[in-house]
Nucleic acid binder design. Structure first.
Length: 321
DNA sequence: GTCCAGGCCAGAC
DNA sequence: GTCTGGCCTGGA
């Protein structure tokens, strides 16, 4: 093995560059179903998060050479195979330290994680190898609640469209580096005030519209306190989340995994059911038992393992006719 | 036209 | 507590 590369992060003209990080592949990060506020165009992912709109791209050789020509410090890039990810419009190093570092889970050692999970079994190893560069984002808690209520019995294309329309409907305006208009994710108060039929018509969420409004109201009036939930043990937090309208066991686990860094939260969806049955169980139909098996096999990182299994299974259509 | 998409809810047992 | 049927919507 070569000596491990030292990751460097720097900001030049409001663009942030992450240099020498092998475990950062925008496609695997954004197209694995954990995030809904992105659009891909020629390898660049336009992403809305918090108050930011950024372009995430793993640069190719020509782009790196162009960057150097444009005034990039040449000494930063001294290996031909050194990966470079650009977060266009992401801001200064202060923005990185206060937001992006957390959002992209930069303090987790993914090389060590891949090694640890790969040792568990061959199928998990195949999934890990397939999705090298996948990271579990740390997204906004309330945004995850609303997004995953919309996700139930739905597909990713339509979920993305509905979340975008909802943000447009009642989120605050923000702008990207080229002054294009985008929208922040709405507050609980903003969604709580919406009319059910307006919401359904404008966003296409259909029968989920009353769930969204009820849940936003429960959160806005502190009937369910999100700050409290984040202090609770996993089981209690999961139970509390399912009090929200439209939140069942699977959605609650997605919220905890992607919005509250709960590595053991193990969402059991159709693909995970297929994978767990094909490789570990056979014909188990009870989701609670499937989840218990996941926790038994993958321990306190079951949720992380789940995300690689899910992504691999969905792409390869494991268990489908 | 029918089927399906990262499930949840209500009602029945 | 566990199981079953119904469900907005739009693209294949």
């Amino acid at each position: 093995m070569n000596k491990p590369m030292q990751r460097k992060v720097l900001s030049i003209n409001k663009d942030i560059y992450i240099i020498g990080e092998e475990d950062f592949d925008p496609k695997h990060i954004f197209e694995n179903g954990q995030a809904f506020r992105w659009e891909e165009n020629q390898g660049e992912y336009t992403v809305v998060a918090n108050k930011y709109v950024i372009g995430v791209k793993k640069l190719n050789l020509e782009e790196i050479q162009k960057a150097i020509k444009d005034g990039w410090p040449l000494d930063l890039w001294n290996h031909e195979d050194l990966p470079v990810v650009r977060l266009r419009g992401a801001g200064t190093m202060e923005d990185y330290d206060t937001f992006w570092r957390h959002y992209f889970d930069m303090d987790r050692d993914y090389q060590a994680l891949r090694k640890e999970l790969s040792d568990i079994d061959d199928y998990l190893k195949a999934s890990m190898d397939f999705a090298t560069g996948l990271r579990i984002l740390k997204q906004d808690f309330f945004e995850m609640i609303i997004s995953f209520i919309i996700s139930a019995n739905n597909n990713i294309t339509r979920i993305k469209k509905s979340v975008a329309k909802l943000s447009e409907m009642c989120g605050e305006k923000i702008y990207d580096a080229d002054s294009n208009v985008y929208y922040k994710f709405p507050t609980p108060e903003a969604i709580a005030e919406l009319d059910t039929e307006d919401l359904a018509r404008f966003t296409g969420v259909g029968y989920r519209a009353p769930y969204l409004i009820k849940t936003a109201q429960m959160i806005a009036n502190k009937e369910v306190d999100l700050d409290d939930i984040r202090q609770m043990h996993y089981e209690q937090a999961h139970r509390e989340l399912t009090l929200l309208s439209g939140v069942g066991p699977k959605v609650a686990d997605c919220i905890l995994l992607f919005g509250d860094s709960r590595d053991m939260a193990f969402p059991v969806d159709t693909w995970v059911i297929k994978v767990m049955n094909k490789y570990y169980l056979g014909e188990e139909k009870n989701n609670k038992k499937i989840k218990a098996e996941g926790l038994k096999r993958f321990g306190d990182k079951a949720g992380l393992a789940q995300q690689y299994l899910f992504y691999h299974a969905r792409i390869h259509k494991v268990g489908s006719r």
